[in-house]
């Protein structure tokens, strides 16, 4: 009857247990990291699935987020106090520091995180993971290591692509929506450009990539309860990844900026 009173306590215990198992899983993955060369061909497969196939959606989202930044900057400049060419600076800074890594991470949570959780979760409930193990494979290094490696490699690459297209989108919108020539836009861009901002975005991308894929692998690996279980793991992956991304975003900014 008073079970609901214990609900917060149980929730806390469950989440701590989850964190413990997550750390354990990551530790056993890192133990096999020195045999990464054995999983090279698998990693290359995932480089393709995680990286190459995501390029169109990354281009699309970064293009539009760059454009919208430009339009909103122009809207705020209407007062006339700020010279119009500043729009290049605003777009450059926002895209490199925040928009490209963040938008890419959120889109990839949906595209990659959910896929990985569903894939590995299905393998769990259909006993494919048991089968792997019975055939003397280490499922952790076979399934998880290549995916996380691939994400660690591909996310920074995707961020670079998002950076470029975000800025192109901003430039396009600025030239079309307000009285800024492309030369002026580029002047604004270069005026405020700090190389560290670009690096910072890449570092964020690396962390986001590892966070998304490791959360997805963890959720998939510990799936139970048939098809419903796979659904739950997928949902949990998306929710937890989004929270982890904004949390990491803050932590990294606080530490590195």
């Amino acid at each position: 009857m008073f079970r609901f009173l214990f609900y917060p306590a149980n929730l806390l215990i469950d989440s701590l247990e989850g964190v413990g198992r997550y750390v354990e899983l990551m530790a056993s993955m890192f133990r096999s990291i020195f045999s990464w060369h054995k999983y090279l061909s698998l990693t290359i497969d995932h480089l393709f699935h995680i990286g190459v196939l995501s390029i169109p959606i990354v281009i699309l989202t970064s293009l539009f987020s760059g454009m919208v930044t430009s339009v909103q900057a122009a809207y705020q400049f209407e007062s006339g106090f700020v010279p119009n060419w500043f729009v290049g600076s605003i777009v450059g800074e926002s895209v490199l520091l925040e928009l490209a890594p963040m938008m890419t991470a959120l889109v990839m949570t949906g595209r990659i995180g959910a896929t990985i959780a569903a894939e590995i979760g299905t393998m769990r409930v259909s006993e494919q993971i048991d089968a792997l193990e019975s055939l003397s494979f280490d499922p952790v290094s076979f399934l998880i290591l290549p995916r996380i490696l691939a994400a660690a490699i591909m996310f920074p690459v995707l961020i670079i692509i998002a950076d470029c297209f975000g800025i192109i989108g901003g430039l396009f919108a600025a030239v079309n929506a307000m009285d800024v020539s492309s030369l002026e836009f580029i002047r604004g861009l270069r005026n405020w450009f700090r190389p560290f901002d670009a690096w910072f975005g890449l570092i964020k991308g690396l962390f986001f990539g590892v966070a998304i894929t490791s959360i997805a692998c963890y959720q998939g690996y510990y799936t139970s309860g048939g098809a419903t279980g796979v659904g739950k793991s997928t949902t949990a992956t998306v929710v937890i990844s989004c929270v982890a991304i904004v949390f990491l975003d803050y932590i990294l900014a606080a530490i590195l900026l």
Partner: peptide, 16 residues
């Protein structure tokens, strides 16, 4: 395990 063959209930074939 390299000396044990296990046949799973629904085959558990790797579907990829």
């Amino acid at each position: 395990r390299s000396n044990i063959g296990m046949v799973f209930q629904f085959g558990a074939l790797f579907d990829s």
